[in-house]
Simulated assay, not measured.
Amino acid sequence: MDWHPHVTVATVVENDGKFLFVEEIKHGRRVLNQPAGHLEKDESLIEAALRETLEETQWRVEILGVVGFGLYVAPANGVTYHRTTFFARPVAFCPEQKLDADIERAVWLTPEELRERRTQLRSPLVLECLERYLGQHRYPLSINY
């Protein structure tokens, strides 16, 4: 078999009704995404979510549970991504943590502000995962094992 899906994680981080997103440059375009990225060798999904959130936002978070699982085939390259989305609470801002090179900045947005910027979303999964979280699709971490 030559087909290999990419395993990714994303984290919905809420603080006082606002959610943490990243502005990044992809294919020459500024897009919005949850803190997200690829699973690395010998890393658990939770470890990946903690690492990616810190690297992309400078926020250390506590993972509280799972929002869901999804598949997305990127139209630009045909790659299939299997995404596990977690939810978390912010624990500490770590300004000494350097942002990943392709991240412009981290931003806190209300759901309404994100919906207004839907043309800037990196993929439909960004809003879908937030809406699932807002709709109380929140599961214990034990669902992941």
Rank of each mutant, 00 (worst) to 15 (best):
D2V: 12
N144E: 14
D102G: 10
Y139A: 09
T80K: 12
R83E: 15
L39A: 05
E52G: 00
A88G: 03
E24N: 07
E23I: 06
E52C: 04
L134M: 08
E47D: 14
H4S: 15
G135S: 13
P140D: 06
Y81R: 08
I103N: 00
Q97I: 10
T8D: 11
D2W: 07
F86T: 01
G78I: 05
Q136P: 04
A106V: 06
R138P: 04
H6P: 02
F21W: 04
V91Y: 05
H38N: 15
L109S: 01
R29V: 14
A88R: 01
L127R: 03
P124N: 07
A10L: 05
G28A: 07
A76H: 11
V31L: 13
F93T: 03
L32N: 00
P95S: 07
Q136Y: 12
T11R: 01
H27F: 13
L114M: 05
L71Q: 11
R30L: 14
L99S: 06
I46P: 03
E14Q: 09
C94E: 15
E131F: 01
D16K: 12
I25Q: 11
T80M: 14
Y72A: 05
N15K: 14
K26N: 14
Y139F: 13
E43C: 06
L50D: 02
C129K: 07
L109D: 01
A76N: 11
W108N: 04
K41C: 09
G70P: 00
C94P: 02
C129Q: 13
G17W: 03
Q97S: 06
F86M: 05
W59V: 00
G70D: 08
G65C: 03
E131Y: 01
L121W: 04
D2P: 09
